[in-house]
Design a protein around this nucleic acid. Structure first.
Lengths: 342, 342
DNA sequence: TATCAGATTGCAATCGATTGCGGCAATAAA
DNA sequence: TTTATTGCCGCAATCGATTGCAATCTGATA
């Protein structure tokens, strides 16, 4: 069951010429006579000849393929980033190989290694939540593999990065909660080792401080998935009587929390306002619609691929590492009070 | 900026042996003395040697890579299918290359061609909505490329297929609508050239017939996305007074329709019941939660990859084409009345 | 007729890894 | 001392495509 696709040698044999003549004829090399060229081109078209990309990559030492590692495709943010990457990649003549780490460090290591084994020209990476050892990245970096991190970046490596201004986004949305009347805001956060988690927490704290509200560490819970909300529902419910707002690190967690509260008789947003982060399309479909900040996944993907492409074209290696920061935009919806209330 | 990764020849030169000796030593060939073997293995480990997958694929004429073409990654159904595929693929030692057609025929053609150029061992395909010409599939099929279609299959090719029982799913959910009191059900359907669209329409019609309801062609609208609902909202609203139920071809369309009706003052489900297809996670998050049928994307992906893997191992080419049919399960939620009402 | 330029085409090496076969040495057997 | 055996390793071809250089042939010029 092995497919047999026509090679340049097959054509050469069939037409009684050498492989080099075929190769030259197909790319209009002036050395080849018109008669021979036409003969070869016609035959190639007839048998639907296509150059073997593996052989080409091996010979040219360039695969025109870039590798992507994302935590999970099922999240809209990541799949829209990938669309952004792909659209730029296609337009520049690159193919992409997509891998999921499933938020698992070992799978991430294997993925990076496999992509390097396939000699991708560069890497686009969003780290898994559980990655604390960066040796696989450092090793690739030391081997001169061009790489761009996006969203969850690796601080240990000085390369291109595309990120959201998580601090500012969190500060904005927390401020909005406070300005619409919230005085006691629960933060559902993510793993402390993730930069985005730290930044969003800092933004939350900064907003409190901006409004002279004392930070209460008991109002921060490590809980960043709907499953996490389910697991910690007793904790969340026990705390729910003393809060009037929730800022969750992402939309799905915010929505899960909102459902939990609704089920337990809370009026959203009048008793408790709920806000998320990311502006997943779901945010607009739930009831009440979720207030959140928009992360421009598609554009971030485009930017990441553009940075990588520039680096790949930079033969003299003179581009310094760059960091592109996307400003998230507040999306006011009905899961939070819209006006100031005292 | 080209990465330099160590090759077997680099090792050979460094240790003053031949490349063949290195190759044999690394795979414990008995011809190589223990001393030489250890020396080579130690050096290889030190420089972090990894075999070039391109060279291996070229030499062995097997890439251990399979190609996937899906319409769009952002849909949960497709990304969960991919997770199912990947998990099986990894466990069998295969890598995957994922392509999106964006529901565009030409992009699909390009994707298939690019995957074949990369000499994938097999293809896993879900056709785009706009594909009406199957030459790119037929050509691959004629070249003996093992392929499995899933969800949206290509009838023109006699190969493995993994599908949902769309007819039965549509019949079930339409029957449920009727049995809970609906007498006039609008169907929001997809392109007629898609099998899944035809089957779901047939299932809908069969359910009507089962319950002695006369089919009304005016109650079928070609509308299969939230955007489509927006575009046809006047049509839908003009028809809304004469209906008491909607069966949409997928969940996102059903939800969009539900929102449209809610905005226009309809009570869901008491005035109009709404049902979807697919059981996207969103279905459970909207209010009211959407009644739908569950399509087991992850399991379908696993099955598709398993079929392909069996075919790849079938050197004698004696496995006949198989079709696996997944039965969708009704998920009763609150967007439809739960009891019979007259 | 000898020589040369120009037009065509093939040879062979290369990319990285694999593998059948042959070669060389040391040791054992005759 | 000669022959055979065994252990260990390298040569060279191969996968598909590219490319510098050499080779061949034609027709033209001296």
């Amino acid at each position: 069951m092995k497919p047999h696709l026509t090679s340049i040698n097959d054509i050469a044999k069939a037409l009684n010429v050498s492989a080099s003549t075929v190769s030259r004829a197909l790319k209009d090399h002036p050395d080849i006579s018109e008669a021979t060229r036409n003969k070869i081109k016609e035959f190639a078209a007839k048998v639907n000849y296509r150059p073997n990309a593996l052989a080409l990559s091996l010979k040219k030492q360039v695969s025109n393929t870039i590798g992507i590692v994302v935590p999970e495709l099922v999240h809209h943010f990541f799949s829209s980033i990938i669309s952004g990457i792909e659209d730029i990649a296609y337009s520049k003549g690159y193919r992409v190989m997509i891998c999921q780490s499933n938020e698992d460090f070992q799978r991430e290591e294997i993925n990076v290694q496999a992509l390097l084994d396939h000699r991708v020209d560069g890497l686009l990476i969003c780290m898994s939540k559980t990655t604390e050892n960066f040796q696989h990245f450092i090793s690739a970096y030391n081997n001169q593999v061009p790489m761009v991190f996006f969203d969850r970046v690796c601080k240990a490596i000085d390369t291109d990065k595309v990120i959201t201004d998580d601090f500012n986004g969190a500060r904005q949305i927390t401020s909005f909660l406070i300005e619409t009347g919230c005085k006691s805001i629960l933060h559902l956060g993510t793993h402390p080792q993730l930069d985005i988690g730290q930044e969003r927490l800092k933004g939350y704290m900064q907003a409190l401080s901006d409004h002279h509200i004392v930070f209460d560490p008991d109002l921060v819970i490590n809980c960043d998935t709907p499953k996490g909300v389910e697991e910690k529902k007793d904790h969340i419910l026990s705390i729910s009587r003393q809060i009037d707002g929730i800022f969750a690190v992402n939309d799905s967690t915010a929505i899960a929390a909102m459902h939990l509260l609704k089920e337990n008789g809370y009026d959203i947003p009048n008793q408790i306002s709920v806000a998320g982060f990311g502006d997943d399309p779901v945010a607009n479909l739930v009831d009440p619609a979720l207030t959140t900040v928009e992360q421009q996944g598609y554009q971030m993907g485009q930017e990441a691929m553009s940075l990588l492409q520039e680096r790949l074209s930079d033969k003299e290696n003179e581009i310094p590492p760059r960091t592109k920061i996307f400003q998230p935009a507040l999306k006011k919806r009905n899961s939070t009070r819209l006006q100031f209330k005292n």
